[in-house]
Design a protein around this nucleic acid. Structure first.
Length: 273
DNA sequence: CTTATGGCCTGTCAGC
DNA sequence: TGCTGACAGGCCATAA
């Protein structure tokens, strides 16, 4: 589910809910593991700390306290919501963080592909989740020059390349198809055969699509909600994703689809070369 | 080095 | 109605 726009929205929502500055009173672990074990240190080390800042890196949410960083990944179906004093666990609630201001932050994740791990601050960037990540697509390091150079001699499809978090972070299956359509580049094209002009278009398209998706509150295909329970609205603007056989919004030709990198991929055979 | 595949899980939906 | 199989937005480890 959540790609960069959705994670960005969730992160901003968590801040608005009033998660910052109030001491953590208690942490409840309602099961022993998600994608990785939910370690007891979450219960023992977090109480007494406060969330000083909540940041996003790639598709990870980083809750920063005085001494630790709590790393959260939503996997495919993870969500954070706010609950209050009358909290009763719902199905697939796995972790509850109680704050002194009575706010309860609840992590729910039906498929349990999510991650919740605690790191000492000075050890944050050396862990297996963050150490190999490429640049943020909406920051200055992600340039046409960067994309052009990194793709040279790459034989795999460009779609797989832009979804590879070591090359650039935050782009998942939906936004890869949408950005490639916007750039006029076929997802199957060999990454190494991208021209400089196409690299420029693709960088601009990735950025434009991600910004528009953030502005629309993200995309909801099935599960995604922001931390206030609201659905995203960018799915109404999809040009190709999940529109197999439907007319291209630009030329009218039927949108095509096939599996690439193990995932369904959508494009227009006429608008994309 | 790059590229492809398997596995983690539950829920939903189409087809019978 | 109930069953079965396919599929769902991610990411790591491992194999080729």
């Amino acid at each position: 589910m959540p790609e960069l726009p959705e994670v960005e929205i969730v992160k901003e929502g968590l801040k608005r809910l009033g998660s910052l500055g109030s001491p953590i009173v208690r942490v409840h672990l309602l099961r022993s593991s998600l994608r990785t074990p939910l370690k007891k240190e979450l219960k023992t080390r977090l109480p007494g700390q406060s969330f000083l800042q909540i940041r996003r890196r790639a598709k990870y949410i980083l809750f920063e306290t005085e001494n630790y960083t709590l790393l959260s990944h939503l996997g495919m179906t993870g969500s954070w919501r706010k609950d209050g004093p009358t909290f009763e666990p719902e199905k697939h609630d796995h972790v509850v963080i109680e704050l002194e201001n009575k706010l309860k932050l609840v992590f729910n994740d039906p498929r349990r592909f999510g991650v919740l791990e605690l790191f000492a601050k000075n050890r944050l960037t050396t862990n297996r989740w963050l150490s190999h990540l490429g640049p943020e697509p909406l920051e200055e390091q992600f340039t046409a020059e960067y994309l052009f150079e990194r793709t040279r001699r790459r034989k795999g499809p460009i779609k797989n390349f832009i979804m590879d978090q070591r090359q650039v972070v935050g782009v998942g299956n939906i936004y890869a198809s949408e950005a490639l359509f916007s750039a006029g580049v076929k997802p199957t094209r060999q990454a190494g055969k991208l021209t400089r002009v196409e690299a420029e278009k693709l960088v601009a398209s990735v950025q434009r699509i991600l910004r528009k998706a953030i502005a629309a509150g993200g995309s909801t295909i099935r599960d995604y909600r922001n931390s206030e329970g609201k659905l995203g609205e960018f799915q109404a603007q999809f040009a190709v994703y999940d529109r197999s056989s439907k007319p291209c919004t630009v030329c009218g030709q039927a949108i095509r689809s096939r599996f690439l990198g193990g995932r369904n991929t959508f494009w227009c055979g006429k608008c994309q070369r």
